[in-house]
């Protein structure tokens, strides 16, 4: 046996936890941007102006029809080249270097936005039309109508989809390891390769992701109870 002490979980605990924090940061940032993209996308898909509608529809359809991993690799390599070309065309010389964190967030948010577009579109369409007409009849401005009618009206319908997407996002952050950015799973891969304790470290990775997804589902079901306050309780009748 080797005379050196085997590297163990204790040596890697700190880097792995730091990786988990990075993963959560990526996920939160990508989710926030994805929410905005989704709102803009849904508004565009429901817009009366046809070119805008076509643009948003092709965005959400194409992104949802291509595998996430492929998109992430494609946007990572293609994205920086495209940005360099764009900057050069604008007269800025040199190569554009984007940090790994920004790329990770950007790519995941771009994918999330497409799915979020569909969730919001469905949720907005589910609001009874009379409520929106009533807001117009009372002279609400478009902003006020969005703030007081559309948003609270669509949230209960959108929340299950939003919760799904958040769970998918946490799991998709692992794909970022493929392009070599040091988040949770990339750190775990390094730990496993250097200690040769593959089984141990991949189990730890699984447990950490499980912890994140289970905590999130619990939080989302509380949130759903909150946005559905005042609605008749259908679960009581079902039982």
């Amino acid at each position: 046996m080797s005379q050196f002490a085997q590297e163990g979980l204790a040596d890697w605990a700190a880097p792995i936890l730091a990786g988990a924090v990075t993963t959560l940061q990526i996920a939160f940032a990508a989710y926030a941007i994805g929410l905005l993209l989704g709102l803009v996308g849904a508004a565009s898909r429901l817009s009366p102006w046809a070119p805008l509608r076509a643009l948003a529809t092709s965005y959400s359809t194409a992104v949802r029809a291509v595998p996430e991993l492929l998109l992430i690799i494609l946007l990572y390599y293609g994205g920086s080249q495209a940005l360099t070309a764009l900057m050069n065309a604008l007269g800025v010389a040199g190569k554009v270097e984007i940090s790994g964190f920004v790329t990770a967030v950007g790519v995941l948010a771009f994918v999330q936005g497409a799915y979020m577009t569909e969730v919001f579109r469905g949720a907005i369409l589910a609001i009874p039309k009379g409520q929106l007409e009533a807001a117009d009849a009372y002279g609400f401005s478009p902003m006020a109508r969005f703030r007081y009618i559309t948003l609270p009206g669509m949230l209960p319908n959108a929340l299950p989809g939003m919760s799904n997407l958040w769970l998918i996002l946490i799991k998709d952050t692992a794909l970022i390891s493929v392009i070599g950015f040091s988040e949770l799973f990339f750190t775990v891969q390094q730990a496993a390769a250097s200690s040769r304790a593959y089984f141990l470290f991949y189990s730890v990775a699984g447990l950490l992701y499980l912890l994140m997804t289970l905590t999130s589902s619990a939080a989302f079901s509380r949130l759903e109870r909150y946005v559905r306050r005042g609605e008749p309780d259908i679960s009581a009748q079902e039982a």
Binding site: L175, S177, R196, Y198, Y202, G206, L210, T213
Partner: peptide, 23 residues
């Protein structure tokens, strides 16, 4: 069901291929 739905597929692939495979 909970474990397979709560962890990334990529991690599962590595777990089975490298983790179980090496064992």
């Amino acid at each position: 069901s909970i474990v397979m739905r709560g962890t990334p597929l990529l991690v599962q692939l590595f777990f089975f291929y490298y983790g179980i495979g090496r064992l």
